[in-house]
């Protein structure tokens, strides 16, 4: 914020001062708004982070239960169904779709799970033995996957919010630390330039005034000198009138003119 260099290249006129002032005002409003947005997003972000933490732990438990239900299947079927399951997978029954949620102007996609009806690739798995366990396991896993989908939504939101918050914060910082000081500097500069002009003007006026005063003073002095001169002459005349008179009329006339 070193004064003179960090400012915009403008002519220090009253007009550009006006422009700068409105610019500063705009920047401040923008800063406030962005700051508020950033705060809202950060709040959301923290909330999401906390939920991610929770959800991850929950996932640990849910997946364990699911894995355990698979162990039950192995127990009941009395063999390994892995290969058969892998080979009979054809069309996904469990899918996700994305929807959007608006948080302070940011669109956060969220996953939503849904199951397509009708196709069941594993309906007959464990037909002879363990079918009920297989069905149960499927449901347990489907629930587990729902948890996973929820977590994936949170995580996506996390990644996107992280990005957006970074951008917003960068803007807030840019406004706060670059644009506003710069505009302020410019205003300061323009003000100081204008003040300088003002002072010059004032000084000049003062000079003019001084001169004028001097001039009038001189004139006054001259006047007074003249008058005193005249008075003196009058007195002389009176003195002369008592003595001799000739000029009295002329002098009287003069005096009338002045007074």
């Amino acid at each position: 914020m070193s004064g003179a260099t960090n400012r915009e290249a403008v002519f220090p006129t009253r007009q550009s001062l006006g422009i700068m002032k409105s610019k500063l005002k705009g920047a401040q409003t923008g800063h406030d708004l962005l700051k508020r947005k950033s705060e809202a997003l950060t709040k959301r972000f923290r909330e999401i982070t906390r939920r991610i933490d929770e959800a991850k732990r929950k996932m640990g438990r849910v997946m364990q239960i699911a894995a355990f239900s698979l162990a039950e299947v192995t127990y009941a079927v009395g063999g390994d169904i892995g290969y058969q399951v892998q080979e009979s997978a054809k069309s996904a029954r469990f899918r996700v779709r994305t929807k959007q949620e608006n948080v302070s102007g940011v669109f956060l996609p969220a996953f939503e799970s849904y199951t397509t009806e009708g196709n069941n690739d594993f309906g007959l798995t464990g037909l002879g033995k363990g079918g009920q366990q297989v069905q149960r396991c499927r449901e347990t896993y489907a629930r587990a996957v729902e948890t996973l989908v929820e977590l994936a939504s949170l995580q996506t939101a996390f990644v996107i919010l992280d990005e957006v918050i970074k951008v917003v914060n960068r803007r807030v910082n840019a406004i706060e630390h670059v644009i506003i000081p710069r505009t302020e500097n410019t205003i300061k500069y323009i003000n100081s330039e204008l003040d300088e002009l003002d002072r010059e003007e004032f000084f000049r006026l003062k000079k003019v005034q001084n001169k004028k005063q001097r001039d009038t003073a001189i004139q006054d002095a001259e006047m007074r000198a003249k008058r005193e001169d005249a008075e003196k002459r009058d007195k002389d005349k009176e003195n002369e009138e008592t003595g001799g008179g000739g000029d009295i009329l002329g002098d009287d006339e003069d005096a009338d003119v002045i007074f």
Binding site: I65, A66, F68, Q135, R136, E139, R143
Partner: peptide, 9 residues
């Protein structure tokens, strides 16, 4: 319902 499909635990 179909069996005791209360799941996992």
């Amino acid at each position: 319902g179909p069996g005791n499909m209360s799941g996992g635990s």
